[in-house]
Nucleic acid binder design. Structure first.
Lengths: 195, 195
DNA sequence: ACCGATATGGAACGCTCGTTCATAACGGAC
DNA sequence: GTCCGTTATGAACGAGCGTTCCATATCGGT
């Protein structure tokens, strides 16, 4: 029944993401998207609605992936929880020099004028904070973080650091400085081990 | 000789900044700018060149102001240097929920495709890091920060935290969490005072 | 009072935008 | 083999874009 599609939907979303990532929402034309995905304009509209809906689709999948990546950090031995958070920060410090985070770019450009984007972003940031809070609680139980500290505050601080590393990487700071800063951020919340 | 201008150039730049701030570069049309500034399109082009030049002018003045604000923090008693950094972070945590930082928005949208924007942003971030590094050095001499730590690393960490607070504020996190995170960030680098 | 020079504001230009639509291509059902 | 429902394509459309241009206004200098 009906002519079958000749494209893979996930591949198209991925190509659209690359394009939006490079040139932003308003900086990307539907013609650009057609070229990037290999589809005709009509096909794009038929499959995804309009430009805005396609962007939301791309954003949603990106956010879901980012959430999955951080939530996965929560699983693991409690005495390595702080190390897992550390690794997460280091990954950001090392990788963000290229193109930055898609969510950060989308939020910066649109969250002020686009409620749907703002809401999706807020949800993701909330998930990040919750996951990092859980990591801090693990580290507290393992005796690596002061048990008297507020876990939610320190979880927020970890996400704050991660977002800051991303912003500065995109802004042109050198990787070495960012890696050192990530190390220092974790060191600042770790209880010194008795020698 | 010649008809004098009827507008104040600084006021026009300020109005343009508000508009770019709200809707971004690609999301702002020259018609929007004409309406926001009250000038005709011809006057805008006559006074500022084209849209891109006007944006760079706006960005440059914003960056200069941001640099001045942080460099001013360096002046003051050494034993209050860490407190001044703290206040800077608190200011960001409390204010960024509204519209975010213009530099962050401009960098996110354009730094990848616009070398002039990228360069101006990188310069500003460098100035921020240098100023915060100086603050850390003061705090080290005052005995409030471990003198063995690398001042540049901790200076970078302060700027990282500031950028992160900005990003999360724009992303919808509540002010109280951000303020707590700012407190915790400073607490993490302060040497505990003997009771 | 006149002139050269600059500012003003909006009409006009060519182009690109996001979106729609007509038509062709295709695969299963009968 | 002939429909039928779906997909694919790019031409077509009106609106809006960034930019230019020009007729008019307004100044300082003579």
């Amino acid at each position: 029944m009906g002519r079958p599609r000749t494209f893979d939907e996930d591949q198209v979303v991925e190509a659209a993401r690359r394009q939006f990532w490079e040139t932003g929402y308003h900086g990307t034309s539907v013609g650009d998207l057609a070229r990037a995905t290999g589809l005709g304009k009509g096909s794009l509209y038929g499959a995804f609605g309009d430009k805005h809906q396609l962007f939301l689709r791309v954003l949603d999948e990106y956010c879901a992936g980012a959430e999955r990546g951080v939530v996965a950090l929560v699983d693991g031995p409690e005495d390595e929880a702080l190390d897992r958070a550390h690794q997460w920060l280091l990954r950001t410090a090392r990788s963000s020099t290229t193109r930055g985070c898609f969510l950060a770019k989308g939020t910066a450009e649109l969250s002020r004028t686009d409620p749907e984007v703002a809401e999706r972003a807020a949800t993701t940031f909330g998930v990040l904070v919750d996951a990092c809070t859980a990591l801090v609680e693990q580290a507290q139980r393992a005796g690596q973080v002061d048990a008297g500290a507020d876990a939610h505050t320190l979880g927020t601080l970890i996400v704050t650091t991660q977002r800051g590393l991303e912003a500065l990487g995109k802004g042109g700071l050198d990787t070495d400085s960012l890696v050192s800063a990530a190390d220092a951020a974790v060191a600042g919340m770790r209880i010194p081990q008795p020698a």
